[in-house]
Design a protein around this nucleic acid. Structure first.
Length: 255
DNA sequence: AAATTAATCAACCGCCCAGTT
DNA sequence: GAACTGGGCGGTTGATTAATT
């Protein structure tokens, strides 16, 4: 008899774990993550389950690269809100905060490198520069360095708000690269033609809602189980042997 | 073809906040 | 009102894949 409690599982999710999680989320909704973590018997934390659901399993998630329109929107919204990824993500249907965060990271890294190159080139080739102030900003751009403060943590207009939240008030400019600087930087590299995308999003009309989990529907589940063909998907329906793998869940389901 | 570097993605960590007891 | 707990968020890291040398 095994008495020692299994360690909490970490690392990549298996397909079976995914399927279990999907099933239980459809049953219990996407709120009670600790409970779900327990009843699934996955030995994952509630947080881990939530993350997996939100970032990967949620129906309606888009796959693939951001479209140019989405990229524009991200830039625009980041300009507006800073690193409020989840907030930005809400304006991009089907995209997660994680995805946007990753995109931004990549994007800004690329930008920094491009600028670095451009500057070193302009330095060596000539000393006339029409926008020296921008160059100063760009020069102070700390090129990606994992650990320490992220160079792309620009803070944005919400900086004070965030700083207060994190109890680390950072004066504008002390980090070397303010939000304005980044925008100057982007201007420099020819992306200044970002204009508000009318109609694509607006504060009041963010109506992109995934089908309510509470109103569990196995039809919409078919979207989620994209990897399964009809025959396979049958096996994940409630009542199937694969379904409740945990005693708690069995009790819960059968009453 | 192998090695190296860059880009991307998925997941964890730690902090904070809101709700509950 | 204090303590506790769960969920959400942003930051960071590690693994994988793609591109380049």
């Amino acid at each position: 008899m095994k008495i020692v409690q299994e360690e909490v599982r970490k690392g990549p999710w298996t397909e079976q774990e995914d399927i279990l999680l999907i099933n239980f989320v459809h049953l219990f909704g996407d709120r009670r993550w600790d409970f779900i973590a327990k009843v699934t018997g996955l030995n994952r934390t509630g947080k881990s389950c939530r993350l997996r659901w939100v970032n990967y399993l949620h129906p309606g998630l888009k796959r693939g690269k951001l479209t140019p329109q989405e990229e524009k929107l991200v830039l625009e919204l980041h300009h507006k809100w800073g690193n409020r990824w989840s907030r930005i993500a809400r304006k991009l249907p089907g995209r997660t905060d994680n995805e946007i965060k990753n995109y931004w990271r990549t994007h800004m890294r690329k930008k920094a490198q491009e600028n670095k190159r451009a500057i070193s080139h302009s330095k060596s080739s000539s000393n006339h520069c029409s926008s020296s102030s921008n160059v100063t900003a760009v020069n102070s751009f700390p090129v990606q360095d994992s650990g320490g403060v992220s160079f792309y943590d620009t803070g944005g207009p919400d900086k004070l708000d965030l700083a207060g939240k994190n109890q680390e008030v950072v004066k504008e400019g002390e980090k070397g690269y303010s939000m304005d600087d980044i925008w100057k930087d982007i201007d420099l590299s020819g992306e200044s033609n970002i204009t508000p995308i009318n109609g694509f999003y607006d504060e009041g009309s963010c109506n992109f809602l995934y089908p309510s989990v509470a109103s569990t529907s196995w039809e919409y589940c078919s979207d989620t189980l994209w990897k399964l063909d009809g025959e396979e998907s049958k096996m994940f329906l409630p009542g199937d042997e694969f379904f409740p793998c945990n005693e708690d869940a069995r009790v819960f389901l059968t009453g």
